[in-house]
Design a protein around this nucleic acid. Structure first.
Length: 347
DNA sequence: TAGAATT
């Protein structure tokens, strides 16, 4: 059991934990990413982190079922927790999805896509909140300080600003050690730093949100579809859907391969010659349910002719996407985005 | 003094 001390208590370093914490813990290497020898089941299960807040309950209203090759579940507890899981059938698809989508920029976020580790209590609640950092200390210094408590095989993503930050460990025990060893210490002189476990959802806001949403007390898993599902299926370098995947899933028949389903058709102008469908998924997906995207190409060169179409299920989401993306600067081009005027249609 | 990594 770890006692989490308040900032005030942090003024008394002796209360921070057991005395005699001198010996430097030996870093324990851990393997978070399945290597070649790992069971196949693990290599089909991905975790997606740093999802934009918009990819949550609000934007997946019209979930019409996941595709046959994968499904994305965004974890949600009243509000999006910003991460989710994807299960692929084929390990190769999972591998390609990592290659194509890890580091993808969605709105203000850069998502991280990696193999999920087998679920275990030992890897949960391993995120620390650090405050009282000297102004000059950045992410690098913080990582250096905390690295003695564990090798983090995942990329450490502490966010340091205004003297506070987060640091994530691979294992709970490593985080506990770090709290014991560093809370109330003065690693850089000055005032002592506060190191404690980061709030878990619901802890911060008291009961306000939860009392409005009684059903939100438990974790809910939301199927987010088709927007990021499609992205996860399409964006790994292949143009359009896999015909095999389409045939295998009746729900998707007529959705891909240039056959727009019902919805709102959006005209996108001023795309670069190199633009492909994945660009459109990336641009529009975060705004809601996208059922189809198409880049119009020159027959001879196969280059984009400068425009394309996106079909979105919900009017409000489509309108928001247009309002947000019209005039958006993509590379050195300014996009023109509007409802398609000549053949505007509705479900 | 706050973002969101284990279903």
């Amino acid at each position: 059991m770890v006692t989490i001390l308040s900032t005030v208590e942090a003024q008394a370093p002796s209360a921070a934990g057991p005395s005699g914490c001198g010996p430097v813990p030996v870093p324990v290497p851990v393997v978070a990413v399945p290597g070649p020898g790992v069971a196949a089941a693990l290599k089909t299960n991905l975790i997606v982190n740093y999802l934009p807040q918009s990819m949550s309950r609000r934007s997946c209203g019209a979930s019409s079922g996941a595709s046959g090759t994968s499904s994305l579940q965004v974890m949600d507890k009243g509000q999006s927790l910003g991460y989710g899981f994807v299960n692929y059938v084929e390990a190769g698809d999972a591998d390609r999805a990592i290659g194509a989508l890890n580091g993808l920029k969605l709105q203000t976020k850069t998502i991280k896509v990696s193999y999920a580790r087998p679920s275990s209590a030992s890897i949960r609640d391993a995120n620390l909140y650090v405050s009282g950092l000297p102004k000059a200390m950045g992410q690098k210094e913080m990582e250096q300080l905390f690295s003695q408590y564990g090798l983090r095989s995942s990329v450490p993503v502490p966010c340091v600003s205004r003297g506070v930050g987060f640091i994530r460990f691979d294992k709970r025990v490593e985080a506990e050690e770090a709290v014991r060893g560093l809370h109330g210490q003065k690693p850089w002189g000055g005032r002592p730093i506060t190191v404690k476990f980061a709030n878990t959802p619901g802890q911060k806001s008291g009961g306000a949100l939860l009392s409005l949403c009684p059903g939100a007390r438990r974790y809910g898993a939301l199927i987010l579809s088709p927007q990021l599902d499609n992205l996860l299926n399409v964006a790994y370098g292949v143009r359009g859907f896999s015909p095999l995947a389409i045939e295998a899933v009746p729900a998707l028949a007529g959705v891909g391969l240039g056959t727009p389903g019902p919805g709102w058709c959006i005209f996108v102008y001023n795309l670069a010659p190199e633009a492909d469908e994945s660009v459109l998924w990336q641009l529009f997906g975060p705004f809601g349910a996208v059922t189809n995207v198409k880049v119009i190409r020159d027959f001879a060169t196969n280059k984009c002719k400068g425009f394309g179409f996106v079909t979105m299920t919900n009017y409000e989401e489509a309108a928001m996407a247009i309002a947000s993306l019209n005039g958006y600067r993509l590379g050195d081009r300014v996009l023109q985005v509007s409802f398609k005027t000549t053949k505007q249609h509705k479900a």
